[in-house]
Design a protein around this nucleic acid. Sequence first.
DNA 1: GTCTATAGGACGATAGAC
DNA 2: GTCTATCGTCCTATAGAC
Lengths: 196, 196
Amino acid sequence: MPKVSAAYKAARRDEIIDAALRCVQRDGYRGTSMAAVIAESGLSAGAIYGHFAGKQEILVAVAERVLAGRQADLEAARVDGQPLSPAALVSALVGGMRLEKATRVIPQVWAEAAVDPEIAEIAGRIFLRVHRLLRTELAAWAAAEPGRVDGDPGAWADLVVPAVIAAVPGFLVQRAILPQFDEDAFIAALPLVYRG
Amino acid sequence: MPKVSAAYKAARRDEIIDAALRCVQRDGYRGTSMAAVIAESGLSAGAIYGHFAGKQEILVAVAERVLAGRQADLEAARVDGQPLSPAALVSALVGGMRLEKATRVIPQVWAEAAVDPEIAEIAGRIFLRVHRLLRTELAAWAAAEPGRVDGDPGAWADLVVPAVIAAVPGFLVQRAILPQFDEDAFIAALPLVYRG
DNA sequence: GTCTATAGGACGATAGAC
DNA sequence: GTCTATCGTCCTATAGAC
């Protein structure tokens, strides 16, 4: 019997997270009030507090979902044949990010991560996971391209991963802030700027 | 007579902005209350409302100062002799940012810019100014290195500037969020990843 | 100009009926 | 589980003495 109830509960939870996500996209992380989430979801205070202990818990769930979605994008960009060069990897990363609709939410989460340890833990976990993913890919590329990279491929990959991944925040922040930002031009420019 | 008073007023304003900056560094942009700014400044409500109309005005001043400071860093990184390559330019940009003490404040401002039009206007203005600065530098480099760049140097520079500048948010976001982030390694990796 | 005290409002969370 | 109504708290901004 708890089977049906569990599926129902999960669906309602998702509805609430959806609504909260729209609120954060519109008003920012801290600018989202419980009243706003209640109105946006079409539910009531009682319904929401039945699924989440409080505001913090909802917003943590929002952060978790949106960051996990981007992590999935990055993992999907992985190609199992030839390992990707830094330039190709950056293009794949940022290209995947284009599909994200909630343009403004990720910078909100990063800002909150700088202040809230619980959000920081989530964001750090995702970053680390992506780091490891890129490290594997880049080490394979470096090993396959002897002469283009000095020293041990693994050590080289460890060093360059943070610089490669940096393009993603750069893309998202400019997209969120600059009204005239041109996504296509940004992606087209990446191979001109990155090695490989 | 108003001369002395004007200097005094400006100094007090700066004190208040200093205090607010420390609060934002600690508690975030929206997490900073008037009570916190009052306590941090050692002044009183009356004193502060004599210089600023309200919370929003103080926080706008904080955003203005911190973004203008980073803009000044970038302009100082400019070298008047040889024009800088993309790799050299990115290193200079990020190297200048290292000196900024208020690590967490800029991501806060970006997140707020995504939500508050007045902050967005300030951030957009600074971004545009840096864009123009980099465009000039990169166009000069492209013109001086014929064969390394296809087509018109100006058009090429227009295209690559957003991708070059992207390293800066990438650096600041990772530094603000990841406890184990290694600034020196990041800067050392830049020439390995960027062309030029 | 700056202080203390407080008015006025918004927000997060709960109580109790259904 | 969900609804309506409300309580207590915190926050911004102001009033009035000095």
